[in-house]
Design a binder for these strands. Structure first.
Lengths: 167, 167
DNA sequence: AGGAAGGGGTTGACACGTCATCCCCAGCAC
DNA sequence: GTGCTGGGGATGACGTGTCAACCCCTTCCT
């Protein structure tokens, strides 16, 4: 079992520091490059790429929320800004009188089309090329294992907490 | 060489998706737990823990900026709010007439002292316990390698870009 | 029919982050 | 001295994210 003291032991602290610092370095660089080369922020990119993959390039807000994991209010605010910038349109949903329908404008389609290859280049340059094939594979498996665990956590917390946590 | 097409190939896409989704799941959960259990945000925690480790529990803003990697203006705004909440004090720097000095209040010290063991528990629960020893070790090395690479990128970009990037 | 419950969407207030700009003071050239 | 430069710091405007309501429509219960 890992420690019972107030902070992490040496090995634990080392992963945590490395993991934390890697992210602090990684994400701002990805976001800055995207912003400077395409004028899109990370949430812009997430929303546009969900839409461009959808049938007819349109989705309901709650569907977008499912794909991007943005809370509905955050999503609503962000969509409002993007409509203002001419990347999207928001209209009343044609069928089922309630609800809205978000669609890509030609400008929005151009923006995401230009952004895709640049994004791919950033990913290769900052994540993939610095690692050899073995490490890429290890990172894939570790990330998938963590993601599975994190999704399971949420369910667990509703019923009661798992045994084993002290306190 | 990895691809020349507009997007990633299959293996590349798989790491990227796994890595991306893991983070999207991980960080909001860490932040929410910290916030709910201690009333501190991630930046609050970063600033308080830098201060509590400093001699006399005080630092100049530019030193804090070095530790946390926050831009000076973001840091200034955040410190202003934290002073308003009674966690910190901001005074004129005693020596060298220019500049400010940020110090922990008793409330600030209490807050970070209570937060430390909770933070450690979150890290164990969400990052460490789901992985076995081998994966912890692999994640440490991969994160350190990526962090080193990312730090080196910045320097490279000042002089000219590295050879090998197409375009 | 009347009304509770719930999903989808909207709003406004406020916390947070970024950018551009500005101020102040030390150190140095002249 | 005067003026330039640069680091440390402050400010205001604006874009972004979160929280807590709230509205509307549908569904289901009675």
């Amino acid at each position: 079992m890992s420690g019972t003291s107030d902070w992490l032991d040496e090995d634990e602290d080392r992963v945590w520091n490395a993991f934390f610092e890697m992210q602090v370095l990684f994400w701002p660089r990805m976001a800055r490059r995207l912003q400077q080369e395409t004028g899109l922020s990370e949430p812009d990119f997430a929303i546009l790429s969900a839409l461009v993959r959808a049938p007819d390039a349109q989705l309901r807000p709650f569907e977008l929320s499912g794909v991007t994991q943005f809370e509905k209010s955050r999503l609503h605010h962000h969509l409002t800004r993007m409509v203002g910038r001419g990347l999207l349109t928001r209209e009343r949903c044609p069928d089922s009188s309630r609800g809205a329908m978000i669609a890509l404008t030609p400008e929005g389609r151009d923006a995401i089309t230009e952004a895709y290859p640049r994004r791919a280049a950033h990913i290769r340059q900052l994540l993939i090329e610095p690692l050899d094939a073995g490490r890429i594979d290890a990172l894939t498996r570790i990330s998938e294992a963590l993601a599975d665990h994190l999704r399971a956590e949420d369910v667990t917390l509703d019923d009661g907490r798992p045994a084993g946590a002290e306190g």
